[in-house]
């Protein structure tokens, strides 16, 4: 099972600000910008970001309209992958996390009445997870490319055709417990700054831009983090 933990994240300013609820990016006031920069520095110096991923690549052995059959009697239920990636030869089950450090600090800020710092640091954490996913997908796509396969766009539990209840199955397939990512009894991932995804690999896979992903999402009109209105 591949586990990668020495991933260097190059966080982009616009991604951070978007995750902090800003739109337009130009109107950030200097007082807030200074806090963001200070928090970024402290996240680095206090090692609040521990980007880690666990993933496993499974050969596809069969596909029905509502499920994908994988080697080792594993199954991914839902119509999303069969309908979007019918030519997939392999599926990569992936879990990414930045660890528990940042969210502990967010809670400390919140409990100490420093709500602004808490929310800005939380946004940095979300942007870090986004960036980590991009890095990990690139890494897996590069490896697949050497075997003549393309990677499709990542899909997550919760998207139409891949229910959130598949998350437990996905964490098992990626062996997420080995990097300290688990589900609560109600199905929430801990550490919270974690995400699970599937990458379909095959000869010709569909890919989307972030704007495409946002346009497909049920939250497209109200989401404060969408790229559509940036």
């Amino acid at each position: 099972m591949p586990v990668i933990s020495d991933i260097r994240l190059n966080l982009k300013k616009n991604d951070i600000l978007r995750r902090e609820g800003f739109r337009g990016y130009t109107r950030i006031r200097p007082e807030i910008k200074n806090i963001v920069l200070e928090l970024l520095e402290s996240a680095d110096s206090a090692h609040l970001l521990e980007p880690t991923t666990a993933y496993e690549i499974y050969p596809v052995t069969g596909m029905d309209p509502d499920k994908v059959l994988l080697e080792g009697d594993a199954v991914v239920s839902g119509s999303l992958i069969p309908s979007t990636f019918p030519e997939a030869k392999e599926l990569a089950a992936i879990v990414c996390t930045i660890g528990p450090g940042l969210e502990k600090q967010v809670t400390e800020y919140s409990q100490g009445g420093e709500t602004l710092r808490a929310m800005l640091l939380d946004g940095i954490g979300s942007a870090a997870v986004d960036t980590l996913v991009i890095e990990v997908c690139h890494c897996i796509a590069n490896e697949a490319s050497s075997r003549g396969l393309q990677a499709g766009s990542p899909v997550n539990p919760g998207m139409p055709g891949l229910t959130i209840t598949e998350q437990g199955n996905l964490l098992g397939l990626a062996r997420a417990g080995d990097i300290g990512v688990n589900l609560t009894s109600s199905g929430i991932m801990v550490p919270r700054k974690s995400t699970s995804l599937i990458l379909a690999l095959g000869p010709k896979m569909e890919t989307w831009t972030q704007a495409d992903v946002c346009a497909r999402c049920n939250l497209r009109d109200t989401c404060p983090y969408t790229v559509l209105h940036s």
């Binding site: 609820g21 800003f22 007082e31 709500t115 602004l116 929310m119």
Partner: peptide, 14 residues
């Protein structure tokens, strides 16, 4: 009116 954003709102509160 989206002239201010959530962090501005929280900043005003602080």
């Amino acid at each position: 009116k989206s002239e201010y954003f959530i962090p501005d709102l929280v900043y005003s509160g602080e």
